[in-house]
Amino acid sequence: MMKYKIKSILPLVSVLLAVNLAFTACCNNQKNNDKMETSSSNEINQIFPKGEAINNDYFSGTAWLQMLVTDKDNFDLTIGNVVFEPGVRNNWHSHPGGQILLCTKGTGYYQEKEKPIQLLNVGDVVEILPDVIHWHGASPDSEFTHIAITSQSHKGSVVWMEPVTDEEYNSYKK
C-alpha cells in the first residue's frame, strides 16, 4: 500500500521541485541582475511570461494570467503566474482543495475573512487551507506577481464571491 502512495505523489513532488527551482532563480535574478527593458520600456524581471489579460468580473482592474501547469488529470493541481497592476485585487473566494501563493515580484496584500490584511513581499509563501475565504492582490503602489498553485483540483474549482470593497482593501494597517 505504501508503495502505491509514493508513486502517486511523484508527479506532484516533481512539479513542486520545478516551481521551487524557478522561484529560486527568479529571486536570485531579482537580487543580482540589472533591470532589463522591453521595447515598450516597461520594466521586466520575470522568468515566466506575463500571460493574457484576465477578462472576467472577479478582478477589480487589470491582471494577467499565464498558466504553467494545466494537466489536472496527471497532477491534480494547476499552477499559474498571476500579475496584478497596482491596486488591483481579486474578489473574495475559496478553493475546495486549497491554494499556495509564491510571491515573486512587488508587494501585495492577502486577507482571510474576519482577519487583518497581511503585506506580501518577494519570497513570501502563503498556504491557504481548503475552503478558507480570502482575497489577494497588489498593494496600492506596486505591481504584484505570484505563482498560484491550486491543489487537489479533483475537489472542484475556485468558488467566487463578492468583490472586496474599497473600505476592506484600504483597511491595511502598517
Results as ranks from 00 to 15, higher is better:
90 N>S: 03
116 P>C: 05
48 F>R: 04
60 S>R: 13
108 G>C: 04
85 E>S: 14
145 T>A: 04
82 V>N: 06
157 S>P: 00
53 A>R: 15
147 I>G: 03
127 E>C: 08
107 T>V: 10
68 L>H: 02
139 S>R: 05
93 H>A: 01
147 I>Q: 03
123 G>D: 04
94 S>I: 08
45 N>Y: 07
83 V>R: 14
44 I>F: 06
87 G>I: 10
78 T>Y: 00
74 N>C: 00
107 T>W: 02
48 F>E: 01
123 G>T: 12
129 L>N: 09
106 G>K: 11
110 Y>M: 01
58 Y>H: 15
141 D>W: 02
143 E>M: 15
89 R>V: 15
48 F>M: 12
68 L>K: 05
102 L>Q: 02
119 L>V: 14
156 G>N: 09
82 V>M: 12
64 W>N: 12
60 S>K: 14
63 A>K: 10
60 S>C: 12
93 H>I: 02
113 K>Y: 07
117 I>C: 05
154 H>C: 03
128 I>W: 02
156 G>W: 05
59 F>I: 14
108 G>Y: 10
154 H>S: 11
100 I>P: 00
102 L>A: 13
109 Y>M: 11
64 W>S: 09
51 G>H: 07
101 L>R: 03
115 K>V: 01
126 V>W: 10
116 P>E: 14
115 K>E: 11
144 F>Y: 15
146 H>T: 08
159 V>K: 15
140 P>F: 10
125 V>Q: 13
105 K>C: 03
56 N>C: 05
